[in-house]
Design a protein around this nucleic acid. Structure first.
Lengths: 262, 262
DNA sequence: CATAGATAACACTAAGCTTTGTTAAACCTA
DNA sequence: TAGGTTTAACAAAGCTTAGTGTTATCTATG
């Protein structure tokens, strides 16, 4: 059976699904199934392995044991595009011209960046290289970059220099994201990032957490903060109503961003 | 007479030269001379005008009056490619594996950046966005970005946050550049940049000034520092011998980087 | 040590972007 | 308004890059 993926990305998603269903497959088998060469399969698998979705061994690949499922979020992140766009549209309404907005290094906040030229004048503060490059091109947006040590895996600047730079500033709004939340707590798997996010929270007047619904109910190695520490928590319309209700009972100020309905 | 420029950039350089020689030319004349359409000439002239090299008027272009000559540096910068490459090659010998190297926001130091992967492991400290993007891709090079307010004209980060970040660090070597030097002093036209460069000099053990010979003998609005404040000054082989001699008499430690001879 | 599996190196292809020219419309200036 | 000059919009050509396959080399495992 030969499928015809529209693109490399698409095919990788299918391969990942396939592996997760089957549990374990050989490379040549995948080459057959998806109608590409073994070499291409290997390249796809290398990439999926880097993302922590699968595990390679001699003779094939297997799904990651669920204990490492955490990193799988990286893969999930790529898929939750519509959710993030919805959240970004909603978060935009919290920003007004003239404000100083702090944005952390997450794909969700990156979505927000694309909407900023509509709200000029504006000051953007970030430690995310990709966002720096994005915003540097936008006229009318003043950009304050947070320095620090560059981490290729996150494409952002972290560490002591970054935290000190944050402490010297004061933002009107912080838009931040995290990798998991449950039982009223936000989590993140990286210590370095937790420290930076906490510093950001200390330096912002209003703290907004952006979170697509796939992150609800999970945990990660490090606690970041109780959800009640945020002035607002924005989730997308895909969030289960009972989860939203439960959060509100914990006095978390949850906003639900409606998904585009087209 | 029809020339055949190898590329768009090359042709623009020739057009600029032509205009500077002639003083004033018509667009159709240029189209003839360079064997391209009038439309293309207009596009080239628009670009050169943006760079402050020429001035457009109905019917043709003229050279910029020398009062605006300063911005012309932008154009000069593009042309001294070979000189900068020579200087970069020379400067590379001053860097050894394991060092922390600080690089400022100049096209000369950018040339050095391309040579860094050969000297790993290495730590690079910079406030230049273009360099950040360049170095972020290089494996084996640790990158410390200096934050600050983004200045589109320089494509770099400046201001108080940047200076504070510099003061918290200590580099083994500083490679810096400036826009002019004469009578034993280095000059730069931008106050913000002068402050940052001075901070960098305070935070480095060895201070190296990189300067292509086109900058010798000029001045600019602000004094940066006496040349004797630098441990080394590297110029390219195009520097007039008597100028080099004069600098040495002032106890400036001048190195002459030989130009590629091919 | 033999063999299947994995990687590295090179070449080919397709897609996207840049550059250029053409044509048509807009704009001055006499 | 008639002459040119400039700009805008579209199309063609060229270049660059990402993606893929082939072949050859390397590596692990029985």
């Amino acid at each position: 059976m030969v499928e015809r993926p529209t693109s490399r990305h698409d095919r990788q998603d299918r391969i990942a699904d396939h592996v997760l269903r089957e549990g374990s497959v050989s490379a040549s088998q995948l080459a057959d199934t998806f109608g590409v060469s073994i070499m291409t399969v290997h390249r796809d698998l290398d990439e999926l392995e880097r993302q922590g979705v699968v595990r390679k061994f001699r003779g094939g690949v297997s799904a990651q044991p669920s204990s490492v499922f955490e990193s799988n979020v990286v893969y999930r992140l790529r898929t939750a595009r519509a959710e993030k766009a919805a959240i970004a549209r909603y978060a935009r309404t919290m920003i007004e011209p003239g404000m100083a907005v702090m944005l952390d290094d997450s794909t969700t906040t990156l979505e927000v960046a694309g909407l900023l030229p509509e709200i000029t004048p504006l000051t953007v503060i970030t430690n995310f290289l990709r966002m720096v490059n994005e915003v540097a091109r936008q006229p009318g947006v003043r950009l304050m970059a947070l320095g620090g040590e560059y981490y290729p895996t996150h494409d952002s600047f972290l560490g002591v220099p970054c935290i000190e730079a944050i402490e010297a500033l004061r933002a009107d709004v912080l838009l931040t994201s995290t990798s998991a939340a449950s039982a009223g707590l936000a989590y993140h798997q990286e210590q370095e990032i937790v420290l930076v996010k906490r510093a950001m929270m200390r330096s912002a007047n209003r703290k907004v957490l952006l979170m697509d619904h796939t992150k609800l109910g999970g945990t990660a190695l490090h606690q970041l903060a109780p959800l009640t520490d945020f002035d607002d928590v924005v989730v997308d319309g895909g969030a289960p109503p009972d989860v939203v209700r439960a959060l509100r009972e914990r006095r978390v100020n949850v906003h639900v961003a409606p998904l585009e309905t087209d």
